[in-house]
Write a protein that binds this DNA or RNA. Structure first.
Length: 567
RNA sequence: CGGGGCGUGGCGCAGCUUGGCAGCGCGCCUGCUUUGGGAGCAGGAGGUCAGAGGUUCGAAUCCUCUCGCCCCGACCA
């Protein structure tokens, strides 16, 4: 491509609205233009980068034996009513009425249509297993789009759906997709770690996220320093140390604690470490109030609580508490009429300080097993860095990252609701067992740039760079430079290299800066200076120094560069 | 949805406090010069100051409402 004829300009200045490096670089390098909040135009070069990523995804998915399909953007709401997600999907579905008066949904994801397609195909166990996938535009009306391409409302997403006859089959498909994902991300030049994750509104049991580590990322993950356990903060479990707990069987006593309503304050007032105190928080949900008690040094993980309750817990208001005779700041699970959960950090045989449900008093010598009401003991605590790994007791490190892929074991929920049944060997009709696997393509591009850039610009890996070679003719007034750079351009094209030839009538500074900004892996430069030595300057984007290669050898040298396996 | 910020030629911004000719840089057009790290000189085009209403002799500037965008939080792939 001759740059003088191409639809591409870089920007000297970008809006101060952009804060993330990937966002700034995508704008500055002329890849995207914002149309409205969370919705972007892609320029030819920006879309070309997206296409390269898609190409990697297609190759790896096909290699894994998955079949490409296309599922529609516009879908009848009926399918969503069947799956039960028409009202529960968050963010809410965007919809419109067609001219027949039917309500149509602009699809935020494609479980419903994928299952619908599978249901029409699926008759027998002989039809299983299979994986179908597509790359399609999805629309999600996020409350707060942000950070350029990282959190948007309309985006390209690769979605795959696996169908198996049983759990073991699903395990195989799930493993295959994980392997495929690892290949995709590696080929895109990203280091990702796989973490255990919460499945959120998609539903299902096992779920893993693929996280590209970046300090600017919006997800917090914990990984063990001595084994391979890793999980995001919503899901992370940890080993709860209970060293030197207080034992005893003394009677409960009131302690006067005027105006002391926080664990921190109480710990200081009594000169007692926080883990000897039980913290109680009351939440409101549809069936009523629920009290959650946890060791005072820990915090409640509301995602774990939501998964247990199957709905979003909301903190109870002061009024809710008063209606049940409870007092903010002095809550306790003793003698309460509402449901009660204990976090498993609490040792029910040990002695603790708790609230008293009376103003200005706490209780000591509280032995939960003897003195507290509780219905269930579960894990509802939030991990923190330095806590001990649930598997090996090593230490958990905290990192930030960008979620680039998410895989779920869905089970039979969708296949039951949408009728994706098959007949097994014994003649029974059974729902197929599903998994689903997503990659945000635009987000992946942003994550690659976030991970691979320097002060001057992007550093693309060879696999997904929008062009392979950035060729510059540095001195436009020299006929010899023009001739030789044209010669290189034509011959590189014949060798099937995708060359961006910067033949613009611009000054050297402009051309060099644009080539660094764009970050094509290899730059070739022809100038009066290089031609005085019958050579061409050869510079990989990530190399410190350029080198001069003679014109006879330049094609071999380029082949050598592109045949090396690294990205 | 709560808190904060912003909206002025194509892009980036100043001007607004204290009302009085619509400014700057970049880009763009023409000409000459220049050519290894975002060139120089000269000339030129381009603006309903987000929108509506109000106050005033006079509003980019003050008041009211509306719309849009960004950041933090909540929520979320």
């Amino acid at each position: 491509m001759r740059l003088s004829k191409y639809f591409w300009k870089t920007l000297r200045e970008i809006s101060s609205d952009a804060e993330m490096e990937s966002h700034k670089l995508l704008l500055k390098a002329g890849f995207i233009q914002q149309v409205t909040s969370g919705i972007f135009n892609y320029t030819p070069i920006g879309w070309k980068a997206i296409s390269k990523i898609k190409e990697v995804i297609f190759q790896e998915m096909n290699l894994a034996g998955a079949f490409e399909v296309n599922l529609p953007v516009n879908q009848p709401i009926d399918l969503w009513e069947k799956s039960g997600r028409s009202k529960t999907f968050v963010p809410p579905l965007a919809s419109f009425e067609d001219r027949r008066g039917n309500e149509m949904v602009i699809a935020p994801t494609h479980e419903e249509t994928a299952t619908f397609l599978a249901a029409s195909y699926l008759d027998s166990y002989r039809d299983l297993p299979f994986i179908i996938y597509h790359i399609q535009t999805k629309f999600r009306d996020e409350t707060r789009p942000r950070a350029g391409l990282l959190r948007v409302r309309e985006f390209e997403m690769k979605d795959a759906y696996s169908f198996d006859k049983d759990e073991e089959g699903l395990d195989d498909s799930y493993r295959t997709m994980i392997k495929t994902y690892e290949n995709i991300f590696r080929r895109c030049g990203l280091d990702v770690i796989k973490v255990e994750a919460d499945s959120g509104p998609i539903g299902g049991k096992d779920s893993s996220e693929f996280i590209s580590i970046a300090s600017s990322g919006e997800d917090t993950i914990f990984s063990c320093d001595s084994c391979d356990y890793a999980a995001n903060s919503e899901k992370a479990e940890f080993f709860k140390l209970d060293a030197d707990k207080l034992s005893g069987n003394e009677d409960i006593k009131d302690i006067e604690t005027p105006n002391i309503t926080t664990i921190k304050g109480l710990s200081k007032f009594l000169n007692l470490s926080k883990d000897k105190i039980i913290k109680t928080v009351v939440y409101k949900f549809s069936k009523g109030l629920i009290s959650v008690s946890i060791r005072g040094d820990l915090d409640i993980n509301e995602t774990k609580l939501r998964n247990y309750l199957n709905e979003d817990p909301k903190p109870a208001t002061k009024k809710d508490l008063e209606n049940h005779g409870l007092i903010e700041g002095y809550l306790s699970a003793r003698n309460i009429k509402i449901s009660s959960i204990l976090d498993d950090s609490i040792d029910i045989d040990s002695s603790y300080v708790t609230g008293s449900n009376k103003e200005n008093y706490h209780l000591k010598n509280v032995i939960p097993k003897r003195d507290l009401n509780y219905d269930e003991i579960i894990d509802v605590s939030l991990a923190q860095k330095g806590f001990n790994c649930i598997r090996c007791k090593g230490f958990l490190n905290e990192k930030r990252g960008i979620e680039v892929g998410h895989v779920f074991k869905l089970g039979t929920g969708y296949s039951e609701k949408l009728g994706a049944y098959f007949i097994d060997q014994k003649g029974n009709s059974l729902p197929s067992v599903m998994g689903c696997y997503g990659i945000g393509v635009g987000r992946l591009l942003a994550a690659v740039i976030e991970a691979r850039h320097d002060k001057k610009g992007i550093i693309f890996p060879k696999t997904i760079a929008p062009f392979q070679i950035y060729l510059i003719n540095l001195n436009n007034e020299s006929q010899e430079v023009l001739d030789k750079s044209n010669y290189l351009y034509e011959n590189l094209k014949k060798l099937n290299y995708d060359v961006l030839f910067d033949d613009r009538n611009e000054t050297p500074g402009v051309k060099l800066n644009d080539s660094d900004l764009l970050g094509i892996p290899l730059r070739l430069l022809v100038s009066k200076r290089t031609l005085s030595e019958q050579s061409v300057e050869f510079k990989p984007r990530d190399a410190e120094q350029s080198k001069l290669i003679s014109i006879e050898e330049i094609f071999q040298e380029v082949d050598r560069f592109y045949n090396s396996i690294d990205t």
